[in-house]
Write a protein that binds this DNA or RNA. Structure first.
Lengths: 146, 146
DNA sequence: GTTTCTGCAAAGCCTTTGCATATCG
DNA sequence: CGATATGCAAAGGCTTTGCAGAAAC
């Protein structure tokens, strides 16, 4: 999906929600889409301020909720209870591996795991709406670690 | 593992940490061990108060940290950022399925998923220290839902 | 022109912390 | 007895909210 198409989805979401296209909402959306990181509200705020965009954290939080609702971005809560956000639309599905030594976030995806978890849910009469799969990992340093 | 053995692990943890065995710590530990639910600090607090045990939330939080550190209980953060706790020692490993309609928490376990995720980590030079795997599900109501 | 937004500051909520008193070993 | 724990209340940190002025359609 190209950038224009993605931006169109954003406009559609605003229309569906019957809300206005403001400079702040636009700036927040493109700021997230142009990033490949997993950032907190604060990070996004600082990034916008650095770009000389006038915006408040209140507006960012309010906008993030809308973007999550329309599946344009993904909200992650990793361990410490602080919410992180990443682009979702136009990106393939993936889960996360978090290095507990460096904090580095690595994306991974495994079709067989996806299938098996679907099966576990179905077995119990449920279907999966969304899932959280995070591996907290440490680098393997030598043989005894394996 | 029987109750006495589990309680022994608790005493060992206190000794390892060189901290005292107080009525509060004991009450908090057994309260969690006797429950099969996934409860918040507040729930545990209310349960203890109902049993006429004098304890403060500060002490509960402080004790929970110790119990988590020694792998006697497990801390879960599900969606809303509120921490939940469940017994861990003496219980087989499992992950969680959360019904988004009723809030019901269902435990599941799948060896193959465990193996595959281990493989994903190893492939990248990491080993898993812990993991979070939560499926947010909805009941299947009819054929079109499948 | 209205309706909807924004920014600000205040309030909320869960969790942590400082401190004086009480308790364990 | 000395060291550690507890409870209280206050402080912290992220997030949400009420409200008056500002902006979109």
């Amino acid at each position: 999906m190209d950038k224009q198409h993605i931006y169109k989805k954003f406009e559609d979401a605003l229309k569906a929600e019957k809300i206005k296209l403001t400079p702040q909402r636009q700036a927040i959306f493109t700021n997230i889409m142009d990033s490949d990181e997993h950032r907190e509200c604060d990070d996004i705020y600082n990034s916008l301020v650095q770009d000389d965009i006038t915006v408040s954290k209140a507006t960012i939080y309010r906008t993030l909720d809308i973007l999550v609702k329309y599946d344009l971005i993904r909200k992650l809560v990793i361990g410490d209870g602080k919410a992180k956000y990443e682009p979702k639309i136009g990106k393939p599905h993936h889960d996360h591996m978090i290095c507990i030594e460096t904090g580095k976030i690595i994306e991974f995806d495994n079709d067989e795991i996806e299938r098996l978890q679907e099966e576990e849910a179905k077995k119990r009469g449920y279907k999966i709406i969304k899932h959280v799969h995070q591996l907290f990992v440490k680098p393997i340093k030598d043989a005894k670690d394996i």
